[in-house]
Design a protein around this nucleic acid. Structure first.
Lengths: 220, 220
DNA sequence: TAGATTGTTAATCGATTAACAATC
DNA sequence: TAGATTGTTAATCGATTAACAATC
């Protein structure tokens, strides 16, 4: 009854970003029929330290067993739960151009906690098309759609200029998180709204930097 | 003549990852006709500390002027140079499915130092199509293509199972960097090869985590 | 010159690694 | 039991922030 003074650990971003990678390795292990693994062995495979793996996992609880290690299958599922992949969040995609279409087709949303329930665009030649059994709707109908269907998450694949107005409206209607592919900087625009950005050109630029650095070190 | 004992600073990844974002903000400032900016003002706009901006920039040289701040246009171009965006690296795309096609169409490679010179796939229904004025070639012809054209960078949009063999072959032929969209873990597979990965589902999973965390904190 | 703002050194903070007692 | 490996505390390392002298 009494609300226990819940510990508020606040897991660091670095830890959270590593979780999906742990999960991928565990899935592979499971696929290979390996049922248990020590932090040492997993660290070796992932090129990490055993310490880091144990520290990371212990942010969420003691999933291991002294003298034994970790049960691969259990840990795989635990990480899925921590990440919330067992959820089914109503999600909409804004922008069904090259990138939006590819993202919609590429990802298995269901298996990672999202349920794609609507796709919107403003271009007449795109509206009406079918992507993954969803008919692309006119973005003009988006607000009504939100009132009826209450999406929790939105994928932003529209040009950056359209983003602020759209995002504001969606937050107004209860959207709690954005997966942002646009170059509009949404970080720090809202309180208590999750924003995860994928800036493709930023990513390619860092590759460019490293290619440069390679050559420089050779010249030396 | 004498090779000066070149300082070997080795810039940290955190700094490098911030450079493209600096550049984006500077481009916007320039677009708005703003010619100078102080670290304080830029920090305010980017939600960083002025200290961090000055530290970051001073990894590469003193671009500012005491009592004045930074010249927006100069700094914008300096960062471009640091990132190597003035280069023109021959680059190939492997896999012209949903994602590969979208990536090829979405990005302005030229403007960030890459020159897309070939696209390859193995599916007969994709080979022969045109993407950005490049005809998709059979991946079977890739090795010969490399011998003739010496690509420096490769974009990997093929299924993960195909990645290791392809990547090994490309490294053999002198490819120096990968932009990896597959779920194959290429980190630490090679020495002196740059790997920049975009794991879309990993990214979406972290959004899922943050959506979960939001709700948890509300429950409290 | 006085005011502003940098470049840079020092202090703080956080994340990673090492060590080891607890325990299966 | 002996051996192995965790969970957790302590030590180290690196990154961010603060402070301030240099200087435009």
């Amino acid at each position: 009854m009494a609300t226990t003074p819940s510990k508020k650990p606040t897991i660091s971003t670095s830890v959270i970003k590593r979780l999906p990678r742990y999960r991928r390795f565990l899935r592979d292990l499971r696929h290979d029929g390996i049922t248990r693994i020590s932090s040492k062995e997993l660290a070796h495979r992932m090129n990490l330290t055993a310490s880091q793996i144990r520290q990371d996992l212990n942010c969420f609880g003691g999933f291991g067993l002294q003298g034994y290690g970790y049960n691969v299958d259990d840990l795989y599922r635990e990480i899925g739960t921590i990440l919330g992949l067992d959820k089914c969040r109503p999600t909409i995609l804004l922008g069904a151009g090259n990138l939006g279409k590819a993202v919609a087709r590429q990802l298995d949303f269901q298996s990672i906690g999202f349920d794609l329930i609507g796709i919107f665009d403003k271009a007449p030649e795109i509206i009406g098309r079918e992507i993954r059994e969803i008919t692309v709707a006119d973005v003009a109908t988006l607000e009504d759609f939100c009132k009826e269907n209450h999406p929790e998450a939105a994928i932003l694949c529209v040009p950056r200029t359209q983003v602020p107005a759209l995002a504001d409206m969606l937050v107004e209607h209860g959207v709690k998180g954005f997966w942002n592919f646009s170059h509009c900087d949404l970080t720090n625009r809202y309180d208590n709204i999750a924003v995860e950005s994928v800036h493709l050109s930023d990513s390619l630029m860092t590759l460019s930097y490293h290619l440069n650095a390679q050559q420089d070190s050779k010249k030396k």
